[in-house]
Design a protein around this nucleic acid. Structure first.
Lengths: 226, 226
DNA sequence: ATTACTTTTTAGATTTGTCTAAATTATATT
DNA sequence: AATATAATTTAGACAAATCTAAAAAGTAAT
């Protein structure tokens, strides 16, 4: 049973959404994929027919075991290719997402496994997201986000949750990137913005929207992967 | 102006055919692509509209300068990925064609150039075919085939023209692969089959059909690429 | 040059994935 | 509970790439 590139994109997006929400809605998925609700409905029917999805109309939906397995394989491919692009081809971590969106649809299972081995079985991609192994298991925890951090504790940026160019622009402007050491100095309850102190720099203010997407690891130094 | 994967496949096939024939026919292209003449005609119109093709109905067709440039870029991608798969991911040279057929449609130009650099700017792919550089120039000559070789001259296999599994099966059976040193001992005019002596092995007989697809380089040792 | 054959093209259908606009179902408010 | 609003689905259309069957154009052979 074949899964097209478009279906893979839907599976992946559903997987991510249901991580947060449990059940996924048509509108949310349409927004995530930059497509229309009607198109999502069309696709849902196909995915249901292929028994990858639990879905009843007007009721929301989520992946079943098969669907999750398929989605995780796509995520695995995406993250391995990102790792390859950054570590082997010297791409910047902020420019690999788009290319990996294409590479993730190459179908050969053997290719993915060989690539994994070639890269030394990494467990974290260049944005800090965990890379599932060949059996779909994650070996790394998801990082905490800046907004749920105690004050005045120095941490290190270990991942960026969203990779829109707009987001990355803000981060670059504030000299925050993967590996940056920083601490949260103050929280403003009015808009949940944060005052953040980056080592050796004046403090800057970060909106809640941005903070939500900056993932950090407590303390231990950022290990450069070879 | 976008060129879909299918269009790229057509461009590539036309390029190869016009190397041999100068002008290409609808039936020949349909056969090469395992599609139908009617489908080819449809695609020809699109390629003509995109000004990649010189084409008048019922008259045959060929790529113009733009079309050739586009085709060569696809060939470049295909052969670089094949090289990558064999040299970096330890694939056998007989199994990479299919995967490269997918990888060749990844669009990022930067990716291709970085890959080229990462691989050390190889000029020959694992089947012995020349890899064009970033400007579309070929730096290597096409190899001669076994059937047009003088008798009793030791040469080295530097390429396999066709990669069907059936072909490769015959070669494997006769212990012929990339790098094998051999010489042609005798030609049988009746069916153009050849008696071939592989170094350190008893002589074997090779059909004309197979010989046509075994490409060799005169003498100089097979340089292992790093 | 007329007929027979081959090649190529056209006409019309199909599949996949998308869309808009309208209809339907669910939810929220009074 | 009735109604307004929001979310979702259906209906119908479209573009891309393919197909089959039939028509048209070109080629060859007497």
């Amino acid at each position: 049973m074949k899964v097209s590139a478009s279906k893979e994109n839907h599976l992946k997006a559903i997987f991510h959404l249901q991580q947060e929400q449990g059940i996924v809605t048509t509108n949310a998925l349409a927004a995530a994929l930059k497509t229309r609700p009607a198109s999502v409905t069309d696709m849902l029917k196909k995915l249901k027919d292929q028994k990858l999805l639990i879905y009843e109309r007007y009721k929301g939906f989520k992946l079943n075991a098969e669907g999750k397995k398929a989605a995780i394989q796509v995520i695995r491919k995406h993250r391995l290719w990102e790792f390859f692009l950054v570590r082997k081809l010297q791409f910047g971590w902020e420019e690999v997402h788009e290319i990996a969106e294409e590479l993730e649809h190459i179908s050969s299972r053997k290719l993915v496994d060989r690539l994994d081995s070639f890269l030394g079985f990494p467990d974290t991609d260049p944005h800090g997201d965990p890379i599932p192994d060949g059996q779909g298991r994650f070996h790394t925890q998801r990082q905490k986000c800046l907004c749920e951090l105690p004050l005045n504790k120095e941490v290190q940026v270990s991942g960026i949750a969203s990779q829109t160019t707009e987001m990355l622009e803000v981060l670059q402007y504030n000299h925050i990137q993967l590996g940056t050491r920083l601490e949260v100095r103050k929280k403003f309850p009015f808009d949940d913005s944060l005052e953040v102190k980056v080592r050796n720099r004046p403090p800057v203010t970060i909106s809640a929207q941005v903070a939500k997407n900056v993932l950090v690891k407590d303390d231990e130094p950022f290990a450069e992967k070879r």
